[in-house]
Design a protein around this nucleic acid. Structure first.
Length: 434
DNA sequence: TCTGGGGTCCTAGGACCC
DNA sequence: TCTGGGGTCCTAGGACCC
């Protein structure tokens, strides 16, 4: 048995903990450059604002509906997430942190009333952290996700589902007829693993509700859509195919990509941007104790704008695996120079580190006595760099490139953030509505 | 006229998730 | 004027081998 517990409108709820005046106010949290809405309060959802909708399209609600847009503060959300996860872990013996705002809990061997237990944990998170959550319980992860969706929807839209499923929904406890009714009332596109494209194909084939999908022929599903949808279907039937990953695996790739605040046409600012991305990616890489074997760099124009389009990427192999930001930046610049073309307005660039491996393993294969002195020096330098940035803030020191002629960014933000950033310590977190 | 067949590895691209 | 930033997994098809 699995539970899925997640924070409602997570980023928006985090902001409200520190700005209680925003309770009941329609609000969104904005991505980098204040470009898109990446979280919406219920009131903002009621205005019809979609996930990832551009801010300029909804800005008019500031005047007409009192909408508030806040610049994202991801350091804060990560911190709040850690606290929420540590309390959520109390639900059962194993936990898989699935994203910044949700975790699966393995409930094997947990005695007593699961719904009551979930309500207690939920209440504790609300009291101690100030974040409202919902819990879905079911025999498979896909059904637990579905149960969570039902718990949230039953709370937000009264009448959509039986009221006693709000906030905490245990699908395993429902009588068969109620279970069927709930699956009939849920659109197939709400299922975890069914995106817009396959959702549309299913509806076009007359498969509209989750109940319709459950009753399809397994072989037919497999032959038309493949093993992924087949697995989803089996999970919906209660056959557990996806296991709980409670030991977080190291990442297989690390990316740092950004849209620019304004179009960039020249090579030097692109070199500057790509150097910084490589440095940031290197920092993440060292954080998981890894080395990269390849660097991918890409640039592209904006698909939303008229004019000539260009999008290209290239993979640059490294002579030997490394976590040295300078080597990563050199490779990224080399790749950039090979794909850069004049005459385009670039809107986005990025660096990805590929073929990651464990630094310990790599080192074990080397004879330490023959390890080049430069490697040791590089390791020390990078460790110092990470320590300074950790202490004084991200990017206080970063890798510069020879193309850089000005001390300040030439590719960065179009405008100042709408709202200032702040950081927290445990002591700063109010006991919400105690 | 007729032009093997099976296996592996790699890569690019698609689809999905939050 | 202004359009997110990460990730994962699967598949198809090409290259190559015997």
């Amino acid at each position: 048995m699995f539970a899925l517990i997640d924070g409602n409108n997570f980023y928006a709820s985090c902001e409200r903990v520190f700005r209680p005046a925003l309770q009941g106010v329609p609000m969104v949290v904005l991505s980098n450059n204040d470009g898109c809405c990446v979280a919406r309060s219920n009131e903002a959802k009621d205005l019809g604002i979609k996930m990832a909708q551009p801010w300029f399209e909804v800005k008019h609600f500031e005047q007409s509906a009192g909408l508030v847009g806040l610049s994202a503060n991801f350091v804060l959300y990560g911190d709040m997430s850690d606290r929420m996860m540590s309390l959520a872990a109390g639900l059962g013996p194993t936990q898989e942190v699935y994203s910044i705002d949700e975790s699966f809990i393995g409930l094997h061997g947990v005695p007593g009333d699961l719904v009551h237990r979930s309500r207690c944990v939920r209440e504790r998170i609300l009291q101690w952290i100030g974040i409202p959550t919902c819990v879905g319980i079911a025999p498979t992860k896909t059904l637990a996700k579905l149960a969570n969706h039902i718990a949230k929807t039953a709370e937000r839209k009264p009448g959509s589902y039986p009221g006693d499923l709000a906030q905490v929904c245990n699908l395993a406890a429902l009588p068969a007829s109620d279970f069927e009714a709930v699956l009939r009332a849920t659109e197939v596109g709400e299922v975890w693993g069914i995106g817009p494209r396959i959702g549309r194909q299913l509806v076009d084939s007359g498969v509209c509700s989750v109940w319709d999908l459950v009753n399809m022929d397994v072989a037919a599903v497999r032959s038309r859509w493949g093993v992924v949808l087949e697995r989803t279907m089996r999970e919906l039937r209660g056959q557990s195919c996806i296991t709980l990953d409670d030991a977080a695996e190291p990442k297989q790739q690390i990316a740092c990509t950004r849209s620019f605040g304004r179009a960039v046409a020249d090579l030097p600012p692109l070199i500057e941007a790509v150097s910084e991305f490589a440095g940031r990616a290197g920092e993440k890489l060292r954080g998981q104790g890894g080395l990269a074997g390849q660097v991918l760099v890409f640039i592209r124009t904006s698909p939303f704008r008229q004019g000539p389009q260009y999008s290209r990427s290239v993979v640059v192999p490294l002579r030997r695996p490394t976590a040295d930001s300078r080597a990563l930046a050199r490779a990224a610049i080399k790749g950039l120079s090979s794909i850069y073309r004049e005459g385009f307005d670039y809107a986005k660039a990025g660096v990805m580190l590929l073929e990651l491996q464990d630094a310990e393993v790599e080192q074990g294969e080397l004879d330490l006595a023959t390890e080049p002195e430069e490697t040791r020096d590089a390791n020390r330098l990078m460790a110092a760099l990470d320590a300074v940035n950790g202490r004084f803030g991200k990017g206080v020191i970063h890798v510069a490139s020879t193309g850089q002629t000005k001390p300040k960014r030439t590719w960065g933000m179009r405008q100042e953030r709408r709202t200032p950033q702040y950081t927290t310590r445990w002591a700063d977190v109010p006991l919400a509505r105690a």
